[in-house]
Simulated scan of single mutants.
Amino acid sequence: MQPSSEPEVRNIPLAGVIGWPIAHSRSPALHGHWLKRYGISGHYVPVPVMPEHLAEVLRALPRMGFVGANVTIPHKEAVLTLADVVTDRAALIGAANTLIFRPDGKIHADNTDGYGFIANIRQHAPGWIPDLSPAAVIGAGGAARAVVASLLESGVPELRITNRTRIRAEQIRSEFGAKVVVYDWAEAGNMLEGAMTVVNATSMGMVGKPPLRVPLDALAPGTLVTDLVYTPLMTPFLQEAEARGCDVVDGLGMLLHQAAPGFERWFGQRPEVDDDLRRAVLG
């Protein structure tokens, strides 16, 4: 029997990040670094999608060889209504950032932001003990919801939250339960007293955004302070906290760690988050 002269057809797995706009995303550099490091024949690309085209694009991507995608602003809430399977944590947070296109054609939606948040702290502040004292979260947007869910799961006895629009913080309390205590924005500084985990989950302090004006006088030395903002890496909020003797963790690691579960599902390799990856993403 003559061997077939036709080359074997082998699909190269594709993944990407869906958003509008998307050119600023660091995810292609992040996943591209891992694909190269592990010698994986695959590609990860930015996919700009206007909101009105989201459903159509999600149906098309699996037919084009995509095995999954990350989702960013403004689509993280909308994809929940379009997915066939939604994990409990994505439903609780009310947003998804990771999609898996299953072989049976179904879209599986998950949220790994909370995982990334905790993994970043564990990597850079290994002595962190969340269940001994209250945590304080500044902000009540989508990112804050993931942080709240992960901190409560980690065992914090009380979670204090404040937001410029109080009703959004009240909504988090109504959904996440009695451990959540809402503070007025004017009392944000008081909220930090006795809290040994403090998180800025707003975009304030980011390049091009207004500064975060919360008095930090009540911060105790040794408090774990982290900022979800990573441009700049050391925000004024983190700089002041460090000057007060706090243990500070920048926000870049959350981006890196939240990407790992998706990469593993799409490309079959559990990737490592290390200094080489940080350098690649920072460019």
Rank of each mutant, 00 (worst) to 15 (best):
G105C: 10
N120K: 08
L61R: 00
D88Y: 00
A149F: 00
Y115K: 03
Y38R: 06
T226M: 10
G141H: 08
A218P: 05
P21C: 05
V47P: 07
E77M: 01
G205T: 04
L99D: 06
M64D: 02
T231N: 15
D276H: 10
I129Q: 15
W34H: 07
L14E: 08
M254I: 10
V9E: 13
V9H: 13
G268C: 09
P236E: 05
A186Q: 14
Y183M: 02
I22W: 09
C246L: 13
S150E: 15
N200C: 08
G262T: 07
Y183P: 04
K179H: 12
D110K: 08
A178E: 15
W266F: 12
V214S: 04
G16W: 04
G155T: 03
G262H: 05
P51S: 10
V71W: 05
D110A: 13
A259S: 15
D113G: 03
G39E: 02
H24T: 01
R213Y: 03
L132G: 01
A140K: 11
D110H: 12
W20G: 01
V156N: 07
L216M: 15
M196A: 02
G253L: 11
D184R: 12
R160H: 09
D131P: 03
A146P: 11
P211T: 01
V214N: 08
S133K: 15
A29W: 12
A96Y: 06
P157K: 07
P271C: 05
E242R: 15
G155V: 05
P126R: 10
I40V: 14
I161F: 02
M50Q: 15
V182T: 08
S174H: 09
T87M: 08
A144I: 05
V229M: 05
G208M: 05
P134A: 02
T98Y: 00
N11F: 11
P271H: 09
A178V: 12
S5E: 15
T226E: 03
A140E: 12
I12F: 03
V148K: 04
A169Q: 11
I121M: 03
A91L: 12
W266M: 06
V281W: 07
A91Y: 04
V156K: 12
H108R: 06
P74I: 03
A119N: 01
A15P: 09
D276G: 13
R160K: 14
Q239E: 14
D276N: 12
T231Q: 14
F176L: 14
G114C: 09
P211F: 01
H31P: 09
T162I: 08
G114H: 10
C246Q: 09
P134C: 04
I138C: 06
G16E: 11
